[in-house]
Amino acid sequence: MLFRILLLFFGFHRFLAETFPLTHANLTLEKISDYSLIYKWEGSDASKKTNHPVVTSGCGAGR
């Protein structure tokens, strides 16, 4: 059962990379424990840099 869940995660990672190639080309991707993905989008104006990240989740999408 766990193996099937992991395959779903990795399949979703592949789907994101194939569906959003510009995102993968322009944002920094950090993987947490191989399963969670964090995309970092650097701004162009360093004077407006903030230490308050925006976090979104696709959990429950389509329900």
Rank of each mutant, 00 (worst) to 15 (best):
M1Y: 10
M1H: 14
L2K: 11
F3W: 11
F3G: 05
F3Y: 13
R4W: 04
I5C: 14
L6M: 11
L6F: 05
L6E: 14
L6N: 14
L7I: 02
L7K: 15
L7W: 10
L8E: 14
L8G: 13
L8M: 09
F9H: 13
F9L: 10
F9P: 02
F10W: 15
G11H: 09
F12R: 07
F12T: 03
H13S: 12
H13V: 08
H13A: 12
R14F: 13
R14N: 13
R14W: 14
F15N: 10
F15C: 09
F15E: 10
L16S: 05
L16Q: 10
L16D: 04
A17I: 07
A17K: 15
A17P: 03
A17S: 11
A17E: 14
F20K: 09
P21Q: 10
P21C: 01
P21K: 09
P21M: 02
P21A: 03
P21E: 08
L22T: 12
T23P: 01
A25V: 02
A25I: 01
N26H: 09
N26F: 06
L27M: 07
T28L: 01
L29W: 02
L29R: 07
E30S: 05
K31L: 10
I32K: 00
I32A: 00
I32Q: 00
S33R: 02
S33P: 01
S33K: 03
D34C: 07
S36D: 04
L37G: 01
I38A: 06
Y39I: 04
K40R: 09
K40A: 03
W41Y: 04
E42W: 00
E42N: 04
G43Y: 01
G43K: 03
S44G: 05
S44P: 00
D45S: 05
D45C: 06
D45N: 12
D45G: 04
A46D: 10
A46S: 10
A46Q: 09
K48R: 11
K49S: 09
K49V: 08
K49L: 11
K49T: 07
T50F: 04
N51Q: 02
N51S: 07
H52S: 12
H52W: 00
H52R: 06
P53V: 09
P53C: 11
P53E: 05
P53A: 11
V54E: 06
V54Q: 07
V54F: 03
V54L: 08
V55C: 07
V55Y: 06
T56G: 08
S57M: 04
S57T: 10
S57V: 00
C59I: 00
C59S: 13
C59G: 09
C59V: 00
C59H: 15
G60R: 15
G60M: 02
A61Q: 15
A61Y: 15
A61F: 14
A61H: 15
G62E: 12
R63S: 11
R63G: 09
R63K: 11
R63V: 00
